[in-house]
């Protein structure tokens, strides 16, 4: 056989890997990304006339994902990318069609100069999606910045539910996931790692403590659920003490002062006025 030229080789690599969507209502447009579990394509739903994203999973992953896909497809939450349809390609690979999210991947978004409140907002949105999914019995298993998108209006989308990544970033995966089945506590670990990832260089100690608690090596030492972690994040935002961090009296005083700056300033102004009037009254 004649040796394959570079151009023929490239052509073969593209066409052999491209999903065969004959028999479905989708028409392939182009590849838009590759992840640890499969390839994502933009496609058009011919019946509804809308653009969708088609994710084609490796055959071996697809077999374990099929049941999970049904559960995930039933999740309706603003931060969970809806799955429209799942199916099997003629070559045995599983695919699912989902909302095509046009936005910025979070690892790119986080590299911008964002305020702490914006960073925490994103973490809270992700946490809310996790809490909702857990309440329905679904676990993400592979939460990481690459699986989160920020839409054009700042909306947060969490994607790639239910499939444990292969080549994903190990920093976000709970230690027990290498030997045991992941449960909601593994997601809490990942959320803690995600919080740590989102924190700026100068990190408030209370937030570091929240992340550290969520990332405890022992699952039983983490937050009991995502709601508890979100509550601590809310307490931090409100200037209240958080359960994960034991403050020294000085730190408590600093926090109280920071939270009540205006009031303390006004009281100080009143005392200053009184002091001034009392000690300099002879001049009036």
């Amino acid at each position: 056989m004649k040796a394959l030229s570079d151009s023929v080789l490239e052509h073969l690599r593209q066409v052999v890997d491209a999903p065969d969507l004959t028999g479905t209502r989708y028409e392939l447009e182009r590849e838009i990304g590759r992840g640890g579990m499969g390839v994502v394509y933009a496609a058009v739903d011919r019946d509804l006339g809308r653009r969708v994203a088609i994710k084609v999973l490796d055959a071996e992953i697809g077999q374990t994902f099929a049941e999970e896909a049904r559960l995930i497809a039933s999740l309706e939450h603003p931060a969970i990318v809806p799955i429209y349809e799942t199916g099997t390609l003629p070559d045995g690979r599983l695919f699912y069609a989902m909302k095509l999210v046009e936005g910025t991947r979070l690892d790119a978004y986080a590299s911008r100069d964002l305020s702490l409140s914006e960073r925490l907002r994103v973490v809270r949105r992700v946490g809310e999606a996790l809490a909702f999914a857990h309440s329905r019995g679904a676990v993400h298993r592979d939460l990481k910045p690459q699986n989160i998108m920020i839409g054009g209006f700042g909306e947060v989308y969490v994607m790639d539910w239910g499939v444990e990544g292969i080549a994903g970033t190990p920093h976000f995966r709970a230690p027990e996931q290498t030997t045991a089945i992941a449960d909601h506590r593994s997601d809490i670990y990942s959320l803690g790692a995600f919080l740590r990832f989102m924190l700026p260089a100068r990190r408030p100690r209370a937030l570091q403590a929240i992340a550290a608690k969520a990332m405890s090596t022992e699952p039983d030492q983490r937050y009991a659920d995502v709601a508890a972690m979100l509550l601590d994040l809310q307490r931090f935002a409100d200037g209240l003490p958080v359960t994960a961090f034991r403050e020294t009296p000085w730190q408590a005083a600093v926090r109280f002062t920071s939270r009540n700056r205006v009031l303390l300033g006004l009281l100080a102004a009143y005392l200053a006025v009184r002091f001034f009037l009392y000690f300099f009254r002879r001049f009036f």
Binding site: L263, L266, Y270, L277
Partner: peptide, 19 residues
């Protein structure tokens, strides 16, 4: 006692407004 009455009154009013 305008100064002695109005100045603290001003600040107390600000505190009440804040609260």
């Amino acid at each position: 006692h305008y100064l002695a009455i109005m100045t603290p009154g001003f600040v107390v009013g600000a505190i009440i407004g804040f609260l």
